[in-house]
């Protein structure tokens, strides 16, 4: 399993993998917002957490279509599915999700404090948003894996995956943003939405890979 994780990481950082597409898209979205909204610093600071979260959510969806499709095109997916007796398929998917998260989504989390400055967010708000992204984005990767597995056989599956995954990822967005606001706006609580966010991640870490493994098993042709 460790071998699979290392292989996917290596692939992500080799030339031509497109793992950094997400970060560049994230940067482009967030850097454009202040120009569109205008130089109202208070407004920017107020919408900052929401914009960061929406940007991160959309960037997460970008690389998802290649999660299983790349393996399917070169025949590796057949072999991964055939190893079901040695490695539980859901665990294989989980490891692939973790590698995808490390390579494509963790850079978004790392970049978010810098992009928070673009939005004139206070230090506490930046910290809280980064923390909620760290806790919440794995859920998007796990839910996304189920969508990616369903659409694995479709040559232009990217849009379908977004349509499948976005509604399921909305709760993650809601609780992520409300926890970020809770950290800066005083009457609103931080901990309850943050804990629900963490629960969503744990829940999808179980359900997402199992659903994806079932979809992959019946998706071979």
């Amino acid at each position: 399993m460790w071998a699979l994780y290392l292989r996917d990481l290596r692939l992500a950082f080799r030339a031509g993998s497109g793992a950094l597409t997400g970060v560049i898209f994230f940067l482009a979205v967030i850097a454009t917002i202040p120009f569109g909204v205008g130089p109202d610093l208070n407004l920017l600071a107020r919408i900052g957490p929401a914009i960061l979260w929406i940007g991160a959510l959309l960037s997460c969806l970008l690389g998802l279509d290649r999660l299983f499709q790349a393996d399917r095109e070169d025949g590796s997916l057949d072999l991964l599915v055939l190893e079901a007796d040695r490695h539980m398929p859901a665990l294989t998917v989980l490891v692939k999700c973790l590698a995808h998260w490390t390579a494509s989504v963790l850079p978004l989390v790392v970049a978010s404090p810098l992009l928070g400055l673009f939005m004139n967010m206070p230090a506490a708000g930046i910290g809280a948003t980064t923390l909620t992204l760290l806790a919440g984005t794995p859920a998007i990767a796990f839910i996304g894996a189920a969508g990616a597995a369903v659409a694995v056989a479709l040559p232009r599956g990217g849009v379908l995956i977004s349509v499948l995954v976005l509604p399921l990822a909305i709760p993650v967005l809601i609780f992520g943003v409300s926890a970020s606001y809770g950290a800066v706006n005083d009457p609103e609580p931080f901990l309850p939405p943050f804990l629900i966010l963490a629960a969503l991640t744990l829940f999808s870490a179980v359900v997402g890979p199992v659903a994806a493994a079932v979809a992959l098993k019946y998706g071979t042709d």
Binding site: R10, L11, D74, G75, D85, H87
Partner: peptide, 30 residues
């Protein structure tokens, strides 16, 4: 399935990895 090696039309190797890395992965994984 657990007793089989399946060699299909595709080679199940990644173009971006070296030959030794590809084989090493399948050795460790299988």
């Amino acid at each position: 399935a657990s007793a089989s090696h399946y060699l299909g039309h595709q080679n199940a190797m990644k173009p971006a990895l070296t030959v030794a890395e590809n084989l090493g992965f399948w050795r460790d994984f299988s």
